[in-house]
């Protein structure tokens, strides 16, 4: 009987595995090619790390990386603080659907729409573009993800400790610092990690809100990719993939990320 049921799903195996092949083959090819000795990006000429050392000497990439890290650290700190507070507030006090809708909107809104919105807004208030304008933009959607992850954590959390703390006469600030924050810490950290990867990988919004003189790394990559395939990009791509994979898996281990985002 059981065998029969399994056989009934047999034909589903094909699209299932096809999905994973489709998702991972392109990435695997790029990673493999980054270790290729040959200058031609396609024919295999033996293992080499030459493209990685070439990366270190590339000033454009280095400057782009520095800009990206400044933006990502700033946006992560800001969106983690604002997002965590917002999540706590939403869980505890919120009855209005407006705040609710506003806090999830950046995650649903197409990035291009948010990008032009901010471009238009910066122009209207006559703010000069620079790293700060990208930082603010990245905080808008980083915050949405932090809020979502922390809220998911709150919904599973036990509130009796908070009540006990209050009953024992602790001030709200003490309760927040000593009970609420430690309970939510895994969720907060996971949210922060997500905000960080989102920011270092984000292109569209940065493209609209960065100053031409201070491009972030994805903008530098974009201008390189437009001129075609190069082994240096393969190496850079591999490094960035490694960073994102590590961070996302770490975030997954801290909280049931897949649950919070579905």
């Amino acid at each position: 009987m059981r065998r029969n049921a399994k056989r009934g799903h047999g034909w589903l195996q094909l699209p299932f595995w096809l999905t994973y092949v489709f998702l991972y083959v392109p990435i695997a090819v790029v990673v493999l090619m980054s270790f290729n000795q040959n200058k031609s990006a396609y024919a295999w000429g033996g293992f080499s790390l030459r493209w990685y050392s070439a990366l270190i000497g590339n000033e454009k990439i280095r400057d782009g990386l520095i800009n990206t890290l400044i933006v990502a650290f700033g946006a992560t700190v800001l969106s983690t603080v604002l997002g965590t507070l917002l999540a706590v507030g939403l869980a505890r006090y919120n009855k209005s659907r407006l705040v609710d809708a506003l806090s999830t909107m950046p995650a649903i809104l197409p990035d291009l729409v948010l990008a032009i919105g901010l471009l238009v807004f910066y122009a209207a208030v006559k703010m000069t573009l620079g790293l700060h304008s990208v930082l603010i933009a990245h905080t808008v959607f980083g915050m949405a993800f932090v809020t979502a992850v922390v809220r998911a954590r709150i919904s599973h959390a036990d509130t009796s400790m908070e009540e006990a703390s209050r009953d024992l006469g602790a001030t709200p600030v003490t309760t927040f610092m000593r009970i609420t924050l430690p309970t939510l810490a895994p969720g907060i950290l996971a949210g922060a990690l997500l905000a960080f990867t989102l920011s270092i990988d984000e292109f569209v919004i940065a493209f609209f809100t960065a100053a031409p003189t201070e491009p972030t790394l994805p903008i530098v990559i974009y201008s390189m990719v437009r001129f075609g395939v190069s082994p240096e990009i393969n190496a850079l791509a591999t490094l960035l993939l490694a960073v994102s994979f590590t961070v996302v898996i770490a975030a997954q281990r801290m909280t049931k990320l897949s649950e919070a985002l579905s």
């Binding site: 990435i27 790029v30 997500l194 990988d201 990559i221 791509a237 960035l240 993939l241």
Partner: peptide, 9 residues
């Protein structure tokens, strides 16, 4: 969660 440009590349 990886870089969108790189996936396109």
């Amino acid at each position: 969660w990886t870089n969108f440009l790189i996936r396109t590349y």
